[in-house]
Amino acid sequence: MFSALARLSLVSRIIIAIVLGGLVAYFIPEAAGYVSILGDLFIKALKSVAPILVFILVLASIANFKVGQGASNLKPILLMYVVGMLLAATTAVIASNLFPSTLILTIDPETQLQPPSSIAEVLKTLLLNFISNPVTALHEANFIGILAWAVGLGMALRHASDTTRQVLTDIADGVNHIIRIVISFAPLGIFGLVVATFAQAGLDTLEHYAHLIIVLVATMAFVALVINPILVAIVMKKNPYPLVFKCLEESGITAFFTRSSAANIPVNLDLAKRLGVSETTANVSIPLGATINMAGAAVTITILTLAAVNTLDIQVDMTTMIVLSVVSVVTACGASGVAGGSLLLIPVACGLFGISSETAMQVVAIGMVISVLQDSTETALNSSTDILFTAAVDLSRK
């Protein structure tokens, strides 16, 4: 049986793990306390290796960069990130108007959480993270700071001896080898995550907000299956869906259960290598995308904010909705720099409509109730888009 499983592709084994995890959660829910350790170990391993992986790969790539290797791909990739997020936020505005959601604002605010008070505070946090101490950045998995130091040291070491640059390449290869070992345990890790998620959350807590969840998930699915393919088709000038489904299959499924873009960086880098993407491009664009490319977060911020607006019967004109889309994109880019991710940035968007911070924090609390699906789908969209846009630009150039 083990030999047969070993011959299957990684995705096939992950799908089998998902099915088995669902069956165990349904028939033996008490096993969740024991099996969940597999998921915890897998996420811990990914999160532990991701910071050093990003630092070493970006450092080695820039130190060994040669003109013509493909760094020019970064500009169109960044452009796709920005356009994709703006279109995602606009789609969320349209979905909220076509299928308006309302909330039950009766739960106590999460007073222990401290959301940023304005976009200026979000940007300030990002700038402070940018100049963070390198050891602290690695310890806290501050990817903005990690990228800044890796790029700076990489540019300085471009003038180092060939031996020094070869050592960096060898270290990068060693880290890649460790990543392949960690990823090979993905089926076991996802099995544990599925059992824990389904056994603990179930569907009872989600019934009250079924409409809101459907709007959120359907909007993100529309972005993944319609908006993103259109952008990829424009860049590649051919049928985008084989690449779209490949990225959703191998990156989106893993990200759905790990619920961490940072933890999914090793998965995306491994997929980029197998797709034939230039390592020079992927080693920079994918960690950068995990930090700032947050289309799913833009959707979450927009829909939950407009749900609060509908609940409070606030009249909104089209100009304000356009401004909301831009604010959602800017705050979504700062999601990684604020504890609590996209949900804690909802009060910033609510401030556009004069909604009090107390009420906005109730919206955040509702978001946490539905986060078992909202956050999982959001992360799957965010992370799969990183590798999708990177591969689309790089492969089209080739």
Rank of each mutant, 00 (worst) to 15 (best):
I265A: 07
I286S: 09
L193A: 12
K237G: 07
L5E: 05
R180N: 13
V122P: 01
F55H: 09
V135W: 10
A201S: 08
S48I: 00
G22F: 08
N264E: 06
A332D: 07
P29G: 05
L8I: 02
T169E: 09
I28S: 12
T359R: 07
S184E: 04
K124P: 00
D317L: 03
T302F: 02
E207S: 12
P100E: 03
E207T: 13
G68M: 11
T106E: 08
K246Y: 05
R165G: 10
G289F: 05
K66N: 14
I355N: 02
V232T: 09
Y26G: 00
V277N: 11
I314T: 09
S260A: 10
I14H: 08
I370S: 04
R274V: 01
G296E: 09
A221C: 11
G70L: 06
D204M: 00
D173V: 11
M321C: 04
S61I: 02
V49Q: 00
A6L: 12
D375C: 05
V194A: 04
A120S: 13
T106H: 01
I265K: 07
S118A: 14
L344Y: 02
V83Q: 02
E279F: 10
L103D: 10
D170R: 12
A186W: 03
P229R: 06
I183L: 12
G337P: 01
G39F: 07
V226Q: 05
V284W: 00
V19M: 13
D313L: 09
V226D: 07
H139A: 15
A339F: 12
S371R: 00
G276C: 07
A233G: 10
L168A: 10
K398W: 02
S325I: 01
T385M: 11
T359W: 03
V369H: 00
A172H: 05
N268V: 00
L157W: 12
V54W: 09
L352T: 04
V393Y: 04
V122K: 01
A60Y: 00
I292S: 06
I346V: 15
A4H: 06
S376T: 06
K44G: 14
V135A: 15
L86V: 08
D170Y: 07
I37K: 12
S336R: 01
V54S: 14
A332T: 06
L46N: 13
G252C: 05
W149N: 12
R274M: 03
K124Y: 03
V217C: 04
I227K: 02
V323S: 05
V267I: 15
A335P: 05
L127P: 02
W149E: 11
H211R: 13
A71T: 02
I303T: 09
R165P: 10
L373P: 02
M155W: 14
A63H: 04
I314G: 08
I104S: 14
A63I: 03
T91N: 08
G276R: 06
K398A: 06
L87I: 09
V277L: 09
A88D: 00
I18H: 04
I301M: 14
A335T: 13
